[in-house]
Design a protein around this nucleic acid. Structure first.
Length: 269
DNA sequence: CCATGTACCTGAAGGC
DNA sequence: TGCCTTCAGGTACATG
């Protein structure tokens, strides 16, 4: 489900609602959801601030950090809002001393909440967040042009740019005119620069439209996103390409469903 | 280093 | 109706 724009939308809402709250209790309803990597008690801790790197949400407490990944179907919902707990898929409930709650729903149970003192152990495995000021076009080109892997595979790996998933990788590659199965090293530098710009555009556009809802994604207030109304290739197979009118194809790249216009997107190998 | 397959899970959709 | 297969926004890990 959630890629950078969806996670960013939730983070912006949590930033408004959570700082200052004190954790009273944590109820874990599906044990694998909660990964304790510290012995420090979470109860009694105060929320200082909320940050994000790639698709990870960091809830900074006064004495530890809660690192959350929503994976495919995770939802963080602020109770007391118009969002109600979907009790069937509720995996974790954090209750605050003021009576409000943060609920973690997750139909497929892939999502995780890591309680740790050292979030770097998790975050150092991924590259730079797409919106990190140090994630520049020159840095991106240098990283990508040195690799021999497939371009879509690299974008999905989070190892260079963190935040893209299947939707925005397909949309960015389409806008840049690069076939997803292209080999990184073979893509001309001007094309890579274009790709960097399109990634920035696609992600910012999606943030400004509150992310995409295919089925499960909801923001912290239970609202759906709007970006799915603007997809150019994702789930548009069989429809005409907005550029050339040829049919959008659905193929398999990096073992993922991949949407492509074979006419507009050049295969570099 | 890289590609591929599998595992983790539930549920919707399509074929028969 | 029901049974079976496939697929889904993500990532970690094992195996060549």
């Amino acid at each position: 489900m959630p890629e950078l724009p969806e996670v960013e939308t939730v983070v912006r809402e949590l930033k408004e609602a959570l700082p200052g709250k004190i954790i009273k209790t944590v109820d874990v309803l599906w044990p694998k959801t909660w990964v304790a990597r510290t012995d420090r008690p979470i109860t009694g801790q105060r929320i200082e601030r909320i940050t994000r790197k790639g698709k990870y949400i960091l809830v900074h407490l006064n004495d530890s950090v809660l690192v959350i990944h929503l994976r495919m179907t995770g939802q963080l919902l602020l109770a007391n809002a118009n969002a109600k707990a979907d009790s069937k898929h509720l995996r974790c409930r954090i209750v605050f001393t003021d009576g409000s709650e943060l609920l973690f729903n997750d139909q497929r149970k892939f999502g995780r909440m890591y309680h740790t003192e050292t979030p770097d152990g998790i975050l150092s495995k991924i590259g730079k967040d797409a919106f990190d000021p140090y994630c520049t076009v020159d840095w991106f080109v240098k990283q990508v042009s040195a690799r021999r892997t497939g371009i879509k595979s690299l974008l999905l790996s989070q190892s260079v740019i963190a935040g893209l998933g299947n939707i925005y990788a397909d949309e960015s590659l389409f806008r840049a005119g690069i076939h997803p199965a292209s080999v990184c090293q073979a893509v001309p530098v001007p094309r890579l620069k274009r790709l960097f710009d399109e990634i920035q555009y696609v992600l910012k556009f999606a943030v400004s439209h509150m992310g995409s809802t295919i089925s499960d994604y909801r923001d912290a207030y239970g609202n759906v996103g709007e970006t799915q109304k603007f997809f150019q290739v994702y789930q548009q197979q069989g429809k005409p390409c907005p550029n050339c009118g040829n049919e959008i194809q659905k193929i398999r790249v990096a073992n993922r469903g991949t949407h492509v216009c074979p006419h507009c997107q050049i295969l570099y190998r």
